[in-house]
Simulated assay, not measured.
Amino acid sequence: MSLSLTPAVRDLLDAWLTHLRSVRGRAAATVTAYGADVSEFLSFQADHLGGSPGPAGLRALQTRDMRAWMAAQRSRDVSARSLARRLSAVKAFFKWWAERDGFDATVVLSMRAPKHIRRLPRPLTEVGAKEMINGVADQDARDWVQARDMAVVTLLYGCGLRISEALGLDARHASLPSVLRITGKGGKEREVPVLPAAQEATARYARLCPHDLPAGTPLFRAIRGGALGPRAVAKVMEKTRMQLGLPATATPHAMRHSFATHLLDAGGDLRAIQELLGHASLSTTQAYTAVDTARLMEVYNAAHPKA
């Protein structure tokens, strides 16, 4: 499908993406994905309406136009989950635009995404998490690469960091403090306690790393000295889990799930874990930790006792 946007619509899209980056603090990958989703939607509407609509034409979209787009998505075997994500991006764009220019975007904003079964995360067992940490150190003959991979995975599990947060650490953190200030999604800051094991693993990597690590540069480096990417971490974990017979769900993000679940199993408070993970909603933490409804209500009632 050809992308055919009028200059005015293209300017609108660029302004929204700039807003996401500069004001909302969205990650570059998120902005790129949102831009692609909305561009595809606008391109479809251009073909569907028989010409490239300008802002006025897009403001006049009808329910039938939205349904036509959704039907076209499903006919291309786009999953319900992916369509829900794309619709969310389209709604976010129209919501921002309507608030900025003062028009009624109810037609777009009222569209309901198709229902999909939410896949609950599958944390590793404590033994599995430890095997993964030790196992990634066996995938490369170079001592510094072994130390690097072990340090990254230790941070994912020991501190509950997102992979982007771990790989985003500055080299000034080569000697990790006992409490680390992390900037997560949406620019939200949180403080995370750092276990001695994570401090030791990171310090060992920094000692062995053959590349200079001045402050202001990435702490974790690829073989040639550039910033280490998430794909490299996922790849070494994939190789390790196959050797250990761990499930395919043993991904970098699963280490974060495991951190939360094991804390809860040890008697950790759900709300405290929510803060450590940087979740805005307790329900998100519930999904991460596979907490049952009774446990969630217990926490809720403790925080909001009835008179």
Rank of each mutant, 00 (worst) to 15 (best):
S175Q: 15
D101G: 08
A151R: 12
D143M: 09
G128T: 06
T125N: 09
V90T: 06
D77T: 04
I182Q: 04
S178Q: 14
T183M: 09
R162S: 01
A171E: 03
Q146H: 04
L156A: 04
A84D: 08
D104P: 09
A174C: 06
D143H: 07
A89L: 10
I182P: 07
Q146V: 00
V153A: 00
T106E: 15
T125K: 04
L156M: 01
S178V: 12
I182D: 00
R112F: 02
A141F: 00
W97D: 11
R122Q: 11
E99H: 05
Q73I: 01
S175D: 15
D140M: 01
A113R: 09
A89Y: 13
L87V: 10
L120E: 09
P121I: 05
R162V: 01
K95L: 12
I182G: 02
L156H: 03
M111V: 15
L176H: 02
A174M: 02
R118S: 08
V107P: 01
P121G: 05
E126H: 08
I133H: 07
W144Y: 13
L176V: 02
R112L: 14
F103C: 08
A137N: 01
N134V: 06
M132A: 10
V127A: 15
L167N: 03
T125R: 06
S79H: 11
D77S: 11
R86Y: 15
L169T: 02
L155H: 12
A137M: 10
A89S: 15
E131Q: 15
D77R: 13
K95W: 13
V107M: 11
D101T: 10
L109G: 04
P121T: 07
V145C: 02
S79Y: 15
A137F: 05
A92H: 03
E131R: 14
L180A: 05
L109Y: 07
A166W: 13
F103V: 14
L176G: 01
W144M: 08
S88L: 00
K91R: 15
L124M: 13
